[in-house]
Structures are given as C-alpha cells and as structure tokens.
C-alpha cells in the first residue's frame, strides 16, 4: 500500500495531495463562531505525522481570516483545542477515544484509516483508481455543528447520512 510508504523521511505524492486537501477542506467547511475567541486556526495531527514538513509550509497561511497553526499531538489531552484533526493510521487504537472525546464538538476529524466514517469520523481519505478521494459522514459533521459545502459534498465518493 503506498499509504504507508510516506512514513519515513520524504512524504509520498499521496501525502502531498492529502496535505493540500487538508488545507483546501477549510475553504468548504464552516465552523461555528468560537465563543472563546481563540486566536488562530489550529490544525492538529494525532499520532505519527505522515506529511513530514509539508504541513509546516502551510503554517501561517490564512484560514477564515485567522492564521493557520500546526500542532502535533501525542495524546488526546489538547484535542478539543483543534479545529481540524488528522488522525494518522498509526493511532488506530486512539480513534475511538478521540471521536468520543470530540463528539458534538466543532472539530473536523479527518483520517485515512479504513472505516473511519463508519466509526463516527467526518472525512475519510480513500484511494480510488490511484487517486486520492474522500468520503464524508454528513451526520457526524452536522452533530459537530460544522457546515459542509455542497461543492465538497459533490466531490465525495460516498457520504453517510441518517444511518
């Protein structure tokens, strides 16, 4: 599986695309207003970072009028501070806990772990015909209070609703 080949050193083409997708998602998803008024848009990676330094290149870019901040988390402790969480495959065992923790919190959860959306994750990367695609769990997004653009929905290979 090429998905794991990017684990060491240089990130693979797949993860270059996925990194870009992560950033692009922010344009098609709307977050509710943050009452805490937290400064910056925090993009977190839970577990091993398969993107190498790609995400660092994105840091400082503008998202919804605020600056993008990258955080790599080893535990679930600060997970609720994130706006977007990428849960890497290596944290498979942590997915259940993370999703439980983030239940109904306005955090966009993304992972390339198979069955992520079935388990309550919002976006799951998939490889179809050698191309990076994604599924969306619309119910999960709605219960998290996130708005997904129809444009994004139209690109999803599948999206789960009212199951």
């Amino acid at each position: 599986m090429p998905a794991s080949s990017g684990m060491a050193g240089q990130p693979s083409t797949e993860y270059r695309i996925k990194a870009a997708f992560l950033y692009n998602f922010t344009s098609f998803v709307t977050w509710p207003d943050d009452p805490a008024g937290a400064s910056g848009f925090t993009l977190c990676v839970l577990g091993d970072d398969p993107f190498g330094n790609l995400l660092d290149k994105l840091a400082g870019k503008s998202v919804n009028g605020t600056q993008l901040v990258i955080r790599r988390l080893g535990s679930l402790a600060l997970l609720d501070q994130c706006k977007l969480v990428f849960i890497s495959e290596t944290s498979d065992d942590q997915i259940g806990g993370a999703l439980a923790l983030l239940h109904e919190l306005p955090v966009l959860t993304v992972s390339d772990t198979r069955g992520f959306t079935e388990r309550g994750g919002i976006i799951e990367f998939r490889i179809i015909a050698n191309k990076v695609r994604f599924d969306i769990n619309l119910n999960a997004a709605e219960s998290a209070g996130l708005g997904i653009s129809s444009k994004l929905l139209s690109l999803a290979t599948r999206f789960r609703q009212n199951d």
């Binding site: 997708f21 692009n24 990076v132 444009k151 994004l152």
Partner: peptide, 9 residues
C-alpha cells in the same frame, strides 16, 4: 469547478 480543481476531481 473550483472545488473539482482544488481536489483534482
């Protein structure tokens, strides 16, 4: 087509 381009679809 913006989304399609952004997501290479």
């Amino acid at each position: 087509s913006t989304a399609a381009i952004l997501f290479g679809d």
